[in-house]
């Protein structure tokens, strides 16, 4: 039997973060990019809870994780509404198709 320690949690969060960044950069679909962002936020939540338990003590880390979850939900709500509107006008949610405005 292994003891689960900080390193294990950090390994998981690093993997989730890497998956999130890969999704964010490789996906051309707006919803796919959003999923990548959610993965990165969840990796941050794992970090907060793990560091809070093993390093800092107190409840700061756990509280931070709860807030991050709420923020992710709020962000998803606003972003999905915007994607839906974009889809209604452009019939696609491909981020590369939004090229009428030149950045």
């Amino acid at each position: 039997m292994y003891d689960v320690g900080l390193a294990h949690y950090l390994l998981v969060s690093t993997l989730v973060f890497a998956a999130g960044v890969a999704t964010m950069t490789l996906k051309r679909n707006a919803i796919g990019v959003l999923i990548g962002v959610e993965l990165v936020l969840n990796a941050a939540s794992i970090n907060f809870v793990a560091f809070g338990h093993y390093r800092a003590g107190g409840l700061d880390g756990q509280i931070a994780a709860v807030f991050v979850i709420v923020l992710a939900a709020a962000e998803a709500a606003v972003a999905l509404a915007i994607f839906l509107n974009f889809y209604a006008l452009h019939a696609t949610v491909d981020v590369d198709r939004g090229d009428n405005l030149k950045g």
């Binding site: 999130g20 959003l34 962002v37 936020l41 990796a43 972003a79 915007i82 974009f86 209604a88 405005l101």
Partner: peptide, 23 residues
């Protein structure tokens, strides 16, 4: 619609990195 799509995606990605950095 297009401006908001870019704004939201770019903003969400930056926020993701920022929160991870904060953790």
């Amino acid at each position: 619609a297009e401006a908001a799509l870019k704004y939201a995606i770019f903003g969400a990605a930056t926020t993701g990195f920022m929160i991870f950095g904060a953790s």
